[in-house]
Amino acid sequence: MAPSAPQAAIRLDSTDDDHLSLRDFKRIADLIGEEVGIKLPPTKRLMVEGRLRKRVRALGLPNLEAYGTYLFQQDGLAAEWPFLINAVTTNKTDFFREPEHFDLLAERLVPDLIELRRAERKPLLKIWSAASSTGAEVYTLAMVLSDLLAQRQDFRFAILGTDISTSVLEQGVRAVYPAELIAPVPPAKQQRYLMHSRKPGIRPEVRIVPELRRLVRFARLNLMDATYPFDRDVDVIFLRNVLIYFDKADQEKVILRLVDHLRPGGYLILGHSESMIGTAVTMRQVAPAVFQKA
Results as ranks from 00 to 15, higher is better:
Arg156Cys: 11
Ile159Gly: 09
Ile159Ser: 09
Ile159Asp: 08
Leu160Asn: 02
Gly161Ile: 01
Thr162Ala: 06
Asp163Val: 06
Ile164Gln: 10
Ile164Thr: 08
Ser165Gly: 00
Thr166Asn: 12
Thr166Cys: 08
Ser167Val: 13
Ser167Lys: 14
Ser167Asn: 14
Val168Met: 10
Leu169Arg: 02
Gln171Met: 09
Gln171Cys: 04
Gly172Thr: 04
Val173Pro: 04
Val173Arg: 13
Val173Gln: 12
Arg174Asp: 13
Arg174Leu: 12
Ala175Glu: 01
Val176Trp: 00
Val176Tyr: 02
Pro178Ala: 04
Pro178Trp: 03
Pro178Gly: 02
Pro178Thr: 04
Glu180Asp: 11
Glu180Leu: 09
Leu181Met: 09
Leu181Glu: 08
Leu181Lys: 11
Ile182Cys: 05
Ala183Ile: 07
Val185His: 00
Val185Glu: 03
Pro187Gly: 00
Ala188Met: 02
Gln190Leu: 00
Gln190Ala: 02
Gln191Asp: 01
Gln191Arg: 06
Gln191Ala: 06
Arg192Tyr: 01
Tyr193Pro: 01
Tyr193Leu: 04
Leu194Tyr: 08
Met195Val: 10
Met195Cys: 07
His196Ile: 03
Ser197Arg: 11
Ser197Ala: 14
Ser197Lys: 11
Ser197Cys: 12
Arg198Leu: 13
Arg198Gln: 14
Lys199His: 15
Lys199Pro: 11
Lys199Trp: 14
Lys199Asp: 15
Pro200Glu: 12
Pro200Thr: 13
Pro200Cys: 05
Ile202Asn: 14
Ile202Ala: 15
Ile202Glu: 14
Ile202Met: 14
Ile202Gly: 11
Arg203Phe: 12
Pro204Glu: 07
Pro204Gly: 02
Val206Asn: 01
Ile208His: 09
Val209Lys: 01
Glu211Arg: 06
Leu212Arg: 05
Leu212Lys: 01
Leu212Met: 03
Arg213Thr: 03
Arg213Ser: 05
Arg214Ile: 06
Arg214Thr: 11
Leu215Cys: 03
Val216His: 01
Val216Phe: 07
Arg217Met: 12
Arg217His: 13
Phe218Thr: 03
Phe218Asp: 09
Arg220Gln: 15
Arg220Val: 10
Arg220Phe: 10
Leu221Glu: 10
Leu221Thr: 08
Leu221Trp: 08
Asn222Gly: 07
Asn222Glu: 06
Leu223Gln: 07
Leu223Asp: 10
Met224Trp: 13
Asp225Lys: 12
Ala226Tyr: 09
Ala226Gln: 15
Thr227Asn: 10
Thr227Pro: 06
Thr227Glu: 14
Tyr228Asn: 07
Tyr228Thr: 05
Tyr228Arg: 08
Pro229Thr: 04
Pro229Cys: 04
Pro229Ile: 08
Asp231Trp: 01
Asp231Met: 04
Asp231Ala: 15
Asp231Val: 07
Asp231Glu: 14
Asp231Cys: 06
Val234Arg: 03
Asp235Ala: 13
Asp235Pro: 11
Val236Trp: 07
Val236Glu: 05
Ile237Asn: 07
Ile237Arg: 10
Ile237Trp: 08
Ile237Gln: 01
Phe238Lys: 03
Phe238Cys: 06
Leu239Asn: 08
Leu239Pro: 10
